[in-house]
């Protein structure tokens, strides 16, 4: 008995750091955030319980509606992009015979991933920027002067410009995920396909893609969760503007808190976002589990 107790004590001692850190710096602010969603609160002199008022206001808030519309467009585009371009590049790389070339490209596509996201965002700001921006100069050079835009400054192009960052959208985790899936395909499957006289496109459609379906599902869920949270790009590039054309829910939350001192209202946005993401994550867990069974 006492021996057991001593072992328990030891086990808990090893857990002290993680439990302390997570309780103080994760659970405490998390529950504060939920609690504060029901308050009108500016972190200074105003601090009043208002029930569901924040949520009611939120659902009537046209800006929040616009932010949700933007995030849906952004997420759908992000999803389509990451289901096609990196997969295309991965399939191509996978089929290169020359091992050295293959290695070179695989490594090469990873390199931009280690460049800080912030640098990439700022680099694209420069590419889009001004009438002498690189993109506008390029359009002029190929004779498409009429297509020149203040890309980040016009409501009709700003969201598109943010989606277009990272073109051709290959360098990223998604490329590596697809490649890992393709590398797991048993080699004799391809050999027997070759004997049966299947061409490359048929092989891709009937053999390769069905066999990497779990990777594709992973990409869908991960990309959705990443896309729903986007806000660094609009924060740095457009502050959500012009108007509300690039506002996202997370950015709206940030602005309500740090520009307007409406911490209670901002917390209610956080709660809504959390619920949406939680739902996505649970669906994700369910799908991943299902594919585990299939394997």
């Amino acid at each position: 008995m006492t021996k057991n107790r001593k072992r328990y004590l030891e086990a808990y001692l090893f857990l002290v750091p993680i439990i302390t850190f997570l309780a103080v710096f994760k659970y405490y602010p998390f529950f504060t955030g939920i609690f504060r969603a029901f308050y009108r609160w500016n972190a200074a002199n105003i601090d009043k319980f208002v029930g569901l008022d924040n949520f009611i206001e939120l659902f009537k808030d046209a800006n929040f509606g616009a932010a949700f519309r933007n995030i849906l467009i952004y997420s759908a585009s992000f999803l389509i992009i990451n289901l096609t371009m990196p997969l295309f590049a991965a399939v191509l790389t996978y089929n290169i015979r020359n091992e050295r070339l293959k290695k070179f490209f695989r490594l090469g596509f990873v390199v931009p991933m280690v460049v800080p996201m912030m640098v990439i965002i700022l680099m694209w700001r420069w590419i889009y920027g001004g009438s002498f921006g690189v993109l506008n100069q390029f359009l002029q050079m190929i004779g498409l002067e009429r297509w020149r835009h203040a890309w980040l400054g016009e409501p009709s192009t700003a969201l598109g410009a943010i989606i277009f960052i990272n073109f051709p959208w290959i360098s990223g985790i998604y490329y590596l995920i697809y490649l890992a899936g393709l590398n797991n395909i048993p080699i004799d499957l391809h050999e027997s396909a070759q004997i049966d006289g299947i061409n490359h496109i048929q092989r891709l459609w009937y053999i390769d893609i069905p066999l990497i379906i779990s990777q594709i599902k992973l990409v869908v869920m991960y990309a959705l969760i990443v896309a729903m949270q986007v806000f660094q790009q609009p924060l740095v590039l457009t502050s959500g503007g012009p108007g509300t054309s690039t506002l996202t829910p997370a950015l709206y939350m940030y602005q309500q808190a740090f520009t307007y001192d409406r911490f209670g209202y901002a917390s209610s946005i956080g709660v809504i976002l959390f619920i949406v993401l939680m739902a996505l994550t649970i669906i994700n867990q369910y799908i991943v589990k299902e594919t585990d069974k299939l394997d």
Partner: peptide, 21 residues
């Protein structure tokens, strides 16, 4: 599970309370 649960809480959801804290 209380450790795993935290994987589902994205950082920005607690941005504001964490800042105040």
């Amino acid at each position: 599970f209380s450790i795993l649960m935290l994987l589902m809480i994205p950082g920005f959801v607690i941005l504001i309370p964490q800042f105040i804290q």
